[in-house]
Amino acid sequence: MQRKVPWHILVFLAPALLIYSVFSALPLLDTLRLSFFTTSESGHQTFTGLANYHTILFDPEWSHAFWNAMWNNCKFFLLHLLIQNPIGLLLATLLSLKSLKGAKTYRTLIFLPTLLSVVIIGFIWQLILSPLWGVGEKLMGFAGLADYFAPFLGDEGSALITLALISVWQFVGIPMMLIYAALLAVPEDIVEAAHVEGASSLRIFWEIKLPLILPTLGLVTILTFVGNFNAFDLIYSVKGAIAGPNYSTDILGTLFYRTFFGYQSQIGSPTMGAAVATMMFLVILSGVGAYFFFIQRKLQRFEL
């Protein structure tokens, strides 16, 4: 006998489903549709199949910009993965210690930058790091590092790294709070039993707490991946859509912006922009799919 779905469940799901369809699903499908067309000078759209994707991947002019943005995006993500998440884990572990005084104040201060606008953060750090009127050189001088000060945002080799570190500083509170909540959920009786058996705090963390919060660490990793491959606002607010110097901070988000809307001498193309956006979606979808297929299943078997 087929079980009927209660009508009130459909009523409560309808608003969320409607909003998701109108603002997420339908625009995504229309972007995919638009990527299969090309726009003439008169504005007329013609179906061209995969021609836009072939241009992005194999045309020398377009492919260089795309793979440069892709590589910068990968570096941007890896810097967050290797710096932000370990720091978040360390901070969460320290804040979960019962002997730590003022833990609530520390949590608030660390999480506070995540509530600020990225535009404000970018503008403030531009002022701090400016070689002309910034206080960065003076602050480094207090630590005896004034000789190492350089125009970090103006150098091709350091601009992307500097922006990634600014982003880490702003958003480290998010993985910290997620991991902190997972650490609080670790059963106290297991930890107390380990203490009774004579295990040190470090051993308890590595052999008990860390394995139990692995699903949360996996969630933090995939959120970091999605967030960084959708990144745009910090790069745009600090370096503009041109993502200088010499496109050294160009990522997929800024490439999409220039392609779709145009910038300076570059004429915008909605169809090519839709193709770039679809490539971004496929990259994110591939990363999330690989996580769930190769990692999430192992974590679930580990929990069992």
Rank of each mutant, 00 (worst) to 15 (best):
K138A: 13
L129N: 09
Y148V: 09
V172K: 04
Q126K: 08
F149R: 08
I121G: 15
L202A: 04
P131Q: 07
A181D: 06
L153M: 11
A193P: 07
E156R: 11
L129D: 13
S201R: 01
E192F: 04
G134C: 10
L165H: 06
G134S: 09
V172R: 04
A181E: 05
G141D: 14
V119P: 15
F142G: 08
P151I: 07
W169T: 05
L178K: 03
A181Q: 03
E188Q: 08
S201I: 04
Y180I: 00
V196P: 11
F142V: 08
P175R: 02
G122D: 15
V119F: 14
V172P: 07
I204V: 06
F152Q: 10
I120L: 15
F149V: 12
E197F: 02
P131T: 03
L153S: 09
A199M: 03
V191E: 15
V135P: 09
A182W: 02
E207W: 03
W133S: 13
I174M: 11
I204L: 03
G154I: 14
L212N: 03
F152H: 12
I190M: 14
V186P: 05
D147T: 06
S117V: 13
M176S: 03
P211S: 00
E192H: 05
D147C: 06
V168I: 09
F152G: 14
